[in-house]
Amino acid sequence: MSALSFRAARRTVPGVYLALVLTLAIGWLVVVLSGGTLFTQATVVSLLHVAAGLGLVAVGQTLVIIGGSLDLSVAYVVSLSTLVAAEAMNGSDTALLPGVLLALAVSAGIGLLNGLLIARTRIDAFIATLGVGLLLKGYLDSGYDGPAGATSPALVQALGYQRIGPVPMSFLLLAAVAAGAWLTLRRTRFGHHLLAVGGDPEVARLSGVRNDRVLVAAHVLCSLCAGLAGVYLAARLGSGAPRVGTEGIYDLESIAAVVIGGTALAGGRGGVAGTVGGVLLLAGLDAVFNQLQLDAFAKQVVRGVVIIGAVAVYARRVIGKGRS
């Protein structure tokens, strides 16, 4: 089972990177023909910043989707995490670490709730995380009208703007998290169990895997990733932002990135490397649109077409739709 999954995962990776190269090449051509330039330092930096935020969420989303689950609450977790971090720090550098840890702890708690709802009460993941998302939305809407708190200047400097050449620290953070998730899936017992649970829960259970624990752990990790994305966005924006997650459509975009990356929505097959490719593709598309100064709505139309097209062309092997 797991050997099969690994092969499938390895096979789909080149697909999305080929799509990425194609998108960037076509985008570059279109931009150059219309008299602009695509690969300036500024555009690359902003592309990588966009990729960092979405990427952190999408890596976590990959884990739950591989486990046959799904998380629609991530957008609200991102928003909540920016607020928790920024309000705890309140503009002081001494509260940096406690603020970050508090934001991550709150996120992990929400992941735990998601996981327990799905594993214990057997509510479908779609509904469970939608419901938890609504709970968080109610809290955010009733508690906040606009930005609140202030991120510690040191964090803003380090995570929000610091970069090595054209590569922002936040993208290195994404690379580290993605590498960690990749190792977890490939090399640890938990990773193998997660693939097994996603592939066939019944077979996994009969083989002695504790499905519930594996799923709960995956959901905690997913929310932690979303929380980390929130910490990054708080650093980027300098304060907590109650709508930043939903305005970025992080829930649906992260799922799109995962599927474009070749992970099966039904679970059991896929990997983090593909997801990072999917994220870079979406971020690259954004960069091209920005250079072309495309209307925001036209952007959305093209985005929709590209998401469907990319999955149609490069994830055709994603069979076994529907969760049985």
Binding site: L252, I255, A256, V301, G304, I307, V311, I319, K321
Partner: peptide, 14 residues
């Protein structure tokens, strides 16, 4: 063979 989640999500954006 695009999963309907993605098809209809793309359609929503479009």
């Amino acid at each position: 063979r695009v999963p309907s989640f993605i098809t209809t999500l793309g359609m929503l954006l479009i």
